[in-house]
């Protein structure tokens, strides 16, 4: 059990039987030594995000979550199938894939972190950095290697577009930060 004041970003607290992940929290002193905590919470079952405020001493049960490293195997409409290190197949609903979809390609070897609550996967997290191939972008700008001038590029296999450095060309392999969807460098 944790108080609202002890909760940190990433913690998953139970709120009326629903696991809620803390996405943001701000602590404020209100009056006469009382305090409040403003939070942004994401319901891991419904994926809805809500803002809330709690007394700092409000007590929460913490969700019992299971985390497992897996790789993506294949799509079996409407589910996405992942495989753990013991070759167990784990099915994931599309709702839980969120931004993973931007980087999901057949045969990818990235190790994803699957978080489950009550044996149901509630979120899939990609590695911070993934390497993807550029399917299309405008021709490279000669001479610019600074990386300051950016242009749009489409990733192979997902059609997801991100801003890349102007020197990047079609067929290049690039590193992308999956938290911010930012181009890092050529791989």
């Amino acid at each position: 059990m944790k108080t609202a004041m002890e909760l940190r970003v990433g913690n998953v607290a139970m709120v009326d039987s629903a696991p809620m992940v803390v996405q943001k929290c701000e602590f404020h002193k209100s009056g006469r030594n009382a305090s409040v905590v403003r939070m942004k919470l994401k319901n891991l079952l419904s994926n809805t995000v809500t803002e809330a405020v709690y007394r700092a001493d409000e007590k929460f049960d913490m969700a019992a979550l299971e985390q497992k490293n897996c790789t993506y195997s294949y799509y079996a409409d409407p589910l996405y199938v992942f495989m753990d290190s013991e070759y167990n197949q784990i099915e994931v609903e599309a709702d839980c894939m969120s931004e993973v979809m931007n980087y999901l390609i057949d045969g990818m070897e990235d190790i994803c972190k699957l978080t489950s609550y009550n044996n149901k996967v509630i979120s899939v997290e990609l590695p911070t950095i993934v390497v993807r191939e550029i399917e299309y972008t405008e021709p490279a700008v000669r001479g610019d290697t600074s990386g300051k001038i950016m242009k749009l590029a489409r990733l192979k296999g997902t059609s997801y577009q991100i801003q890349v450095a102007a020197f990047v060309e079609i067929g290049d392999m690039i590193e992308v930060d999956t938290r911010t969807n930012e181009f890092k460098k050529r791989a």
Partner: peptide
């Protein structure tokens, strides 16, 4: 920023 925000009871509806 906090005015009128909800506070969902951790254990009850």
């Amino acid at each position: 920023d906090c005015h009128c925000l909800p506070s969902f009871h951790p254990h009850l509806s």
